[in-house]
């Protein structure tokens, strides 16, 4: 298997996560697709620097979330993008209205968080271990636990305010 094939296989295994990360850092479909392409581009550019000390998926998450931050800085300078699969462009438009409502609730909650907490919530939802979260984010495991319990409390307060 050559480098491109290895890379594509890794991307295909993690493409769902890449699209969801992009969805949570953007507000419009066009912007999200642009971010997805930027992530793929940067992953490919940095693929040689992946040192295999961490899991491939851990590295993909780290790069994808870092690119999402970079994208936030330059997002106002919009440029045309390569058309991508139509099915992917429909990610938030889920067919089941209850699912759609749940997704909107998730997005509303995440949008209110600061960027550090947003990163933690994404990794939590992806069911990463505390050790993996600490490695990707670059903080201690105990710090991850403290911040997550604070985020959970914040969500409870938010829900009780809405009720």
């Amino acid at each position: 298997m050559d480098k491109a094939e290895t890379f594509i296989a890794a991307l295909q295994a993690n493409q769902g996560s890449i699209y969801k990360i992009a969805s949570l850092y953007t507000h419009e479909a066009e912007d999200r697709d642009d971010l997805v392409q930027e992530i793929i581009y940067q992953l490919w550019k940095s693929f040689d620097s992946f040192n295999q000390q961490s899991k491939l998926s851990t590295w993909i998450y780290r790069v994808a979330m870092n690119v999402a931050i970079y994208h936030l800085k330059v997002t106002k300078r919009k440029v045309p993008i390569v058309p991508i699969d139509e099915q992917l462009s429909n990610l938030p438009d889920v067919d089941n209205s209850q699912d759609e409502e749940q997704w909107k609730l998730l997005k509303t909650f995440v949008d209110k968080l600061n960027l550090l907490d947003k990163g933690l919530v994404i990794l939590y939802l992806e069911e990463k271990t505390y050790e993996e979260m600490a490695e990707i984010i670059g903080i201690s495991v105990s710090n991850v636990a403290t911040k997550l319990s604070r985020i959970k409390e914040k969500l409870k307060q938010q829900i009780s305010k809405q009720a």
């Binding site: 493409q15 969801k20 991508i84 749940q102 997704w103 609730l105 998730l106 969500l155």
Partner: peptide
Amino acid sequence: MELDDLKNSWHQATGRVEKPQIITRAML
């Protein structure tokens, strides 16, 4: 509602995007 409850919608969204294998060498 707990943070864990939001995992359902997160995982349902995964199911929607993992079906098509869209990233090809040509697209890359």
